[in-house]
């Protein structure tokens, strides 16, 4: 009898704690809380923006998570986040899914990014053409000798297929921007789950070639100069060369919001386009769009 009483009390206590736990989840008022999710390329930038904005506006809470452009857009479509970060434009089928869900996505270009092609610091190769990189990643060129390097096998590194950087590289470098080109990555391309994995392998392995966002490149790897023609010019990625359009592998970075987003989200996006926020962009190795529009 006594045991049963204890048992019942324990059960009631458990139910009560469960209730308070679920109740406390709802305390942050939604009006000052911005959920931001998506591209791993932008995640550091989005975090830096969020920190600075929260410092200026202590009443606003911004949470930033990565996971990939598609993950962020899917979350925005299902209404679980306010802002989706994407390193590519929204796809037609994602747009349809959003509209079917009663959400109209709005596109904002928030920064620009250049993709750096990287090799081991001791690799004597300094420059490659887009054609050569395309042939390397298709598995046609398999030895560094064929592009003016040492007699070493080429180990190709890439981000996973869920990365916006992967899709961008496939379309703009391997297929050279040609939509009828159906070339794909060689099957023996190593697909690494993170930018850090690519930097770690390239900085250790003299056979490796990799690519990553300019913002992720460290001094442990060598960045190659890229040319569109075999005779040159070959251009190293930098804020100036990306802004001037001289560096061929660069792209816009986006944030997507829903048309009927709360005003708070709009204020945040306006701030992101301010010179103060764009200053953070260049500090993190990306390319600010304000400078771009001034240059044009």
């Amino acid at each position: 009898m006594k045991r049963i009483t204890v048992f019942v009390i324990v059960i009631i206590a458990m139910i009560l704690t469960a209730c308070t736990a679920s109740g406390s989840d709802q305390t942050p008022p939604p009006s000052t809380y911005i959920q931001n999710k998506g591209s791993d390329t932008i995640v550091n930038l989005a975090l830096a923006w969020a920190e600075e904005y929260q410092r200026l506006h202590p009443e606003v809470r911004i949470s930033v998570t990565g996971g990939g452009s598609g993950t962020g857009i899917t979350a925005m479509i299902s209404g679980t986040v306010d802002i989706a970060n994407a390193s590519r434009q929204i796809k037609e089928e994602e747009m349809q899914a959003a509209l079917a869900n009663g959400i109209e996505p709005v596109e904002h270009v928030v920064a620009r990014d250049a993709i750096a092609v990287i090799v081991h610091p001791q690799n004597p190769v300094n420059q490659l053409t887009i054609d050569q990189i395309s042939l390397i990643y298709q598995g046609v060129i398999n030895n560094w000798q064929e592009v003016g390097g040492e007699n070493r096998p080429i180990v190709r590194l890439s981000r996973e297929t869920n990365s916006g950087t992967h899709v961008y590289f496939l379309e703009e470098v391997i297929r050279k921007g040609d939509h009828n080109n159906k070339a794909i990555f060689s099957a023996d391309t190593l697909l690494l789950p993170s930018s850090e994995g690519i930097i770690a392998e390239v900085s250790d392995n003299p056979n490796a070639i990799g690519y990553d966002g300019l913002g992720y490149v460290t001094e442990h790897v060598k960045v190659l100069a890229i040319g569109t023609q075999p005779q040159g010019p070959f251009v190293l990625p930098s804020i100036e060369t990306v802004n001037s359009g001289a560096y061929p592998i660069s792209r816009d970075l986006y944030m997507y919001t829903r048309r009927d987003a709360p005003p708070l989200v709009g204020e945040y996006l306006n701030w992101i386009l301010s010179p103060q926020a764009q200053d953070i962009v260049s500090r993190l190795g990306f390319v600010p769009i304000v400078t771009l529009s001034a240059g044009n």
């Binding site: 996971g67 990939g68 598609g70 993950t71 899917t74 089928e93 994602e94 899914a97 996973e160 297929t161 869920n162 023996d188 190593l190 697909l191 789950p193």
Partner: peptide, 19 residues
């Protein structure tokens, strides 16, 4: 002694993105 891709790694890295 060459790279390989397992079933579990494939599910883990691709499931988050897929429609």
């Amino acid at each position: 002694f060459m790279p390989a891709r397992t079933m579990t790694a494939t599910i883990a890295s691709e499931m988050g993105e897929v429609a």
